[in-house]
């Protein structure tokens, strides 16, 4: 069996629910825990995608400003970043841009980016529209999801999409820090065929993949990815970021 081990860093402003997102996904029990993270918390989880076992090392960082100086230590050698913002606070969305810029400056290896708008259950207080977030995600080459840690909506997709992205990265072989190897525990022999995990109609799939965007997601259309028909986007570039600066009409001062 093929095993891919990747480092995932969770970034975002304070109080957007990074720790909750991770904890909820990993053991689905939410301690009513309002403590801010100190430094970084470390989690591991395994995701099976058909023939590929993906081990995620999740680094859940603290969002406070003072940890910003230490962030390079956390995202160093990361293969994927989950950028979380709070849908009810526009500021946290705007701050994602500074994270993108920083990653762009400091990380050379290609990285899978996932943009997550959290607290989607709070419809009334919503301050960031789905379209705007989508557009921004496209511009930085990220996949966009909305989640709720209260109702558990969308959590699975975030991590599955990240895992899928890592598989893609491993297939392309462009990332030096991503570890991919054949496990001797494998019961399937010589199963090197790439993209086997994408064979969605295979009944033996460990997971039936939910709606997952890879590359540029198209809004409103049910996009299923296949090995061939995948739209390849270059990993983000500074021009894309410039394009992503959409003025939000309702946001002022």
């Amino acid at each position: 069996m093929r095993v891919i081990e990747g480092k995932v860093v969770v970034l975002g402003s304070r109080g957007v629910g990074k720790t909750r997102l991770v904890i909820k996904y990993i053991n689905s029990t939410l301690h009513r825990n309002e403590e801010p993270t100190i430094g970084v918390s470390f989690f591991t989880c395994k995701i099976m995608l058909d023939e590929v076992k993906i081990k995620l090392q999740i680094w859940d960082t603290a969002g406070q400003e003072r940890y910003k100086a230490l962030a390079p230590m956390y995202y160093r050698n990361a293969n994927a970043a989950i950028l979380v913002f709070d849908l009810t606070q526009y500021k946290t969305f705007a701050e994602i841009k500074s994270w993108i810029q920083e990653l762009h400056r400091n990380v050379q290896d290609p990285m899978i980016l996932t943009l997550v708008g959290n607290k989607m259950d709070m419809h009334a207080e919503r301050a960031v529209s789905r379209d705007e977030a989508h557009l921004f995600a496209n511009s930085i080459g990220a996949t966009y999801f909305e989640t709720s840690t209260e109702t558990d909506q969308g959590l699975e997709q975030v991590f599955l999409s990240t895992a899928l992205g890592l598989v893609r990265l491993a297939d392309e072989g462009k990332s030096r820090s991503l570890r991919s190897f054949q496990s001797c525990e494998s019961i399937y022999k010589n199963n090197n065929t790439a993209f086997s995990h994408l064979n969605l109609d295979n009944g033996s799939a460990a997971f039936r993949l939910p709606y997952v965007h890879i590359g540029i997601p198209v809004d409103g259309e049910d996009v299923r990815t296949s090995g061939e028909g995948r739209l390849e986007t270059p990993s983000w570039s500074i021009e894309h970021i410039a394009l992503g600066e959409v003025e939000h009409t309702s946001w002022c001062c």
Binding site: T19, E35, I38, S41
Partner: peptide
């Protein structure tokens, strides 16, 4: 004493 969250997972803290 005042970080209950350490109980559940590993932390790397400056």
């Amino acid at each position: 004493e005042c970080s209950q969250s350490f109980k559940t997972y590993e932390n790397w803290t400056p």
